[in-house]
Design a protein around this nucleic acid. Structure first.
Lengths: 150, 150
DNA sequence: CCCTCATTGAGAATGAGGCTCAACGGAGGT
DNA sequence: ACCTCCGTTGAGCCTCATTCTCAATGAGGG
């Protein structure tokens, strides 16, 4: 996987630095969606301090290269995740506990491609987010009740 | 329409202030998605200066009441639009010229409801955004070419 | 008209993310 | 290995959307 990054960087004549390797590694080893701060924290835990500017720049670069995806779960900051050639997937986000569940529905792919086509758009990327309550924790069920009685 | 706002506020024992009326009015009269700054600017043009804190608070309130919707088109700030009982719609966003096109596809509604159901989620709201190029302007076609040759 | 309590607004605070620029370090050539 | 050339890095500063603070204000019920 790190080979893919090395190759992509070489392709674009960009240097494969320790920082880029470390950041990609952290993202790669996590199954969660990490914020720039999460990444910086994890690097610190590994005794590899990397400036936040570099963290931001590298995350943006990984997205550019198509190796990572950027997500906004309405928390006021972005989250990132490695995208190792995996199919595009979408998310269900619990507004109470923050849990994120991935899903993929073939039918959606077809419909969205059709919508873009009809509108004369050439799609680059897309996002589908369903915000709701997952009901798994106390807080989730409470919020669910609050919404129902609204 | 302003009656709906008045009623909703009364229902929740919240005062119907001049500021709330003016902000809702601006949003109501626009067909575009307005940012908090857009709203403040329009109010200033109408000789009704309202503090930005109030603009932000009121926009959040309108969303809470279900009278407006909040959108993030990846511009670094949020945009708002009145939602007068209209059906939920989704967006195509041109990353070159910023044009936003609305669309609605019944099939999507059904599929997303099904996805939430299967995952045990109770959906509160959802968003679908397709980012791409609309090809209408010079800049859009240029960006389109850039992506193709990437 | 009064009183209460939420709202308002000016300005400061917060926080994600970008910018600056001197020092640094890949990596291809020698 | 060594050199040299650029692109990268990082500490700190800057921006800008959004929120907070708190004293003054005003909605609206009695």
């Amino acid at each position: 996987m790190m080979e893919v990054l090395r190759a992509e960087l070489h392709e674009k004549d960009l240097p494969f630095t320790h920082q880029r390797e470390a950041i990609a590694q952290v993202l790669f080893e996590s199954t969660r969606h990490l914020s720039a701060d999460d990444v910086a924290d994890e690097l610190r835990r590994r005794q590899q301090h990397i400036g936040k500017a570099t963290v931001y720049r590298t995350l943006a670069l990984l997205v550019e290269l198509g190796l990572a995806t950027e997500h906004d779960f309405d928390e006021g900051f972005k989250r990132y995740q490695m995208q190792m050639g995996a199919a595009h997937h979408d998310h269900l986000i619990c507004t109470a506990c923050g849990k994120v569940v991935r899903f993929r529905h073939e039918e959606l792919e077809r419909i969205l491609a059709e919508v873009a086509e009809v509108s004369g758009f050439e799609a680059i990327t897309r996002q589908i987010k369903i915000f709701g309550t997952c009901g798994e924790q106390e807080a989730c069920r409470e919020m669910r009740q609050a919404y129902r009685s609204n």
